[in-house]
């Protein structure tokens, strides 16, 4: 599956709407303007133009080996349900709260094990680099001694760390995170990020990737211009984030499908995970928006393919509705 031609398509589409985009909402329009707009809207609505757009879009998705039942109502419904599922999965990732991502006890245990094994290996340090590293570890840990004790990590006389389970149980997730994660934390100063994801969070990511791939599969059999257009946009967004996704063990294949490397994801740095999956402008949120649009567009397409209302005089198709809403806003 390739994405050649989307830029050409976008500029073509935008040129049709350039007159609409540039107009200030506060201005009323003259009759000549309305006629001009009607002409443009009619071009977009015409079956031949729609066919041309579909051809361009389908080049990005169509699975040439299987063209059965493309555009059928059942396929559009399937796409709608897959896209809605993807939107829900992406939203549960982006708005589910990041605290559920990492397991506090596991993170602290991993850290203490890693720290102690490094202290042990540096016990007989001879090189300057090793001595420097040993000194960084010990001095930094001494500075943060009381903060570490607050979350149940005790510094022993041999400079090794031990865990006070009851204190750790009562320690707040936020305190653990502020010590072991982030750019200026204790963890970052000694080269450690609590990172990784808990099993429940891993399941969420797996579910998201599965829904994403299912949506792409369904898009191949869709006949909805709007759904396909948003589908290309969704794939482009994934491409834009592909290198960041790779850092957390999610690879984007040549067929645009997502594949998860569970081991890499479990060890991924928290900051990268946060930038991808948490917040309003994150990757997950962008995908949720697009998937939600695909869901609505394909549901509408399913209705239309049942009622056969596409026509060049403006039936209840998407463009007619859009043009009508534009006219309403401008008058």
């Amino acid at each position: 599956m390739s994405l050649y031609g989307i830029n050409a398509y976008t500029s073509n589409y935008n040129s049709l709407y350039s007159g609409l985009y540039n107009r200030s909402k506060s201005y009323s329009t003259s009759t000549s303007d309305l006629l001009e707009l009607a002409k443009k809207a009619d071009m977009v609505r015409s079956p031949s133009y729609r066919k041309k757009m579909l051809e361009q879009l389908k080049n990005n998705f169509s699975d040439k080996s299987d063209t059965s039942e493309v555009g059928s109502s059942s396929n559009e419904m399937k796409l709608s349900s897959n896209a809605k599922q993807l939107s829900a999965d992406a939203l549960s990732l982006s708005s589910g709260g990041f605290s559920s991502w990492t397991n506090k006890s596991d993170a602290v245990k991993n850290f203490v094990d890693k720290y102690n094994s490094e202290i042990e290996s540096l016990a007989d340090a001879e090189t300057t680099a090793d001595k420097g590293r040993q000194s960084t570890l010990i001095n930094t840990t001494q500075k943060y001694r009381s903060a570490l004790e607050d979350i149940g990590i005790t510094v022993g006389e041999d400079n090794k760390l031990s865990i006070d389970s009851s204190k750790l149980l009562n320690a707040s997730e936020r305190n653990v995170r502020s010590l072991l994660s982030g750019s200026y934390s204790y963890g970052s100063k000694i080269g450690y990020d609590m990172g990784g994801v808990s099993d429940s969070a891993l399941d969420l990511v797996k579910k998201f990737a599965e829904s994403y791939n299912n949506t792409l599969d369904s898009l191949e059999k869709s006949d909805s211009v709007q759904a396909l257009e948003k589908g290309v946009s969704m794939v482009n967004t994934t491409k834009a984030f592909s290198r960041t996704l790779a850092k957390v063990g999610i690879s984007v294949g040549s067929d645009n499908r997502l594949t998860i490397d569970e081991d890499a994801l479990k060890k991924a740095p928290e900051e990268t995970l946060r930038s991808l999956f948490s917040g309003g402008y994150s990757y997950a949120n962008k995908i949720a928006d697009k998937a939600s649009f695909i869901g609505r567009a394909s549901a509408l397409e399913a209705q239309l393919s049942n009622s056969y209302t596409y026509n060049n005089k403006g039936g209840l198709d998407f463009f007619s509705q859009m043009a009508a809403s534009l006219f309403e806003n401008m008058i």
Binding site: N7, T10, N236, K239
Partner: peptide
């Protein structure tokens, strides 16, 4: 713009 999905990052 690059993250919006409107443009293919490999052709922009």
């Amino acid at each position: 713009a690059l993250k919006s999905g409107e443009y293919d990052v490999n052709k922009t």
